[in-house]
């Protein structure tokens, strides 16, 4: 049976997924080795049950992130923090040092100060999820088995980890393969 693999995009720039797509021709080989059951690049709405491996891009920034992450943890055997935002909080977490008001300030900056048309923070339910007081890396919210740092992780590094996992090994990165940033 092929591994049921998911990738998910939380609070991040999607650069890690771009890097994933950068694996080029290996993607074709990969398609024969795994079942991609959930991902921003495929059209599945609900995170499925019984997933073997999930790569998580992005930090935990809002209540939606937290909710889906917990669901993912319950339905997945192995979680991999995918990229610096997931591993360290990285750029999304740069609002944290600005204290308890950082949420309001971020929204103000994004939707009012930088708005060309119709400035105003969206208020209706379900449009902008409530931001968490602090952005946290994935492993502060749920337990994570493996870490794949980099901003973004180069395609070769992602491939290395995937191949090891598919081969049933605990992925092991060493030296510059672990470089943050």
């Amino acid at each position: 049976m092929k591994l049921r693999v998911a990738t998910v995009w939380l609070g991040g720039c999607s650069g890690c997924h771009m890097s994933f797509l950068d694996m080029d021709e290996f993607l074709i080989e990969l398609a024969g080795l795994i079942d991609l059951v959930y991902s921003p690049v495929i059209d599945v709405k609900e995170f499925p049950e019984a997933v073997d491996v999930c790569l998580i891009e992005g930090a935990v920034c809002n209540e939606d992130n937290l909710e889906i992450l917990r669901k993912i943890r319950e339905r997945t055997k192995v979680l991999v923090s995918f990229g610096d935002c997931a591993v360290t909080g990285n750029v999304p977490a740069m609002r944290n040092p600005f204290g308890p008001d950082n949420r309001e300030n971020v929204l103000q900056r994004a939707y009012v100060e930088n708005a060309r048309n119709n400035p105003g923070v969206p208020k209706a339910d379900g449009i902008v999820p409530r931001l968490l007081e602090q952005v946290v890396p994935v492993h502060e919210a749920v337990y994570v088995e493996y870490y794949l740092p980099g901003c973004p992780p180069p395609a070769a590094r992602i491939k290395e980890v995937l191949v090891q996992i598919i081969n049933g090994q605990a992925p092991l990165l060493t030296g510059p393969q672990l470089k943050f940033g």
């Binding site: 990285n90 977490a93 502060e140 943050f180």
Partner: peptide, 29 residues
């Protein structure tokens, strides 16, 4: 934040971290 640091790639802290196998920080930031 290595990704946006002027010394990304030339930083002794960063280099030591990967040389010593630091893949994530378990303590709360």
């Amino acid at each position: 934040v290595c990704a946006v640091c002027v010394s990304n790639g030339h930083c002794e802290l960063q280099t030591l971290a990967y040389s010593l196998g630091l893949d994530h920080v378990r303590y709360d930031y």
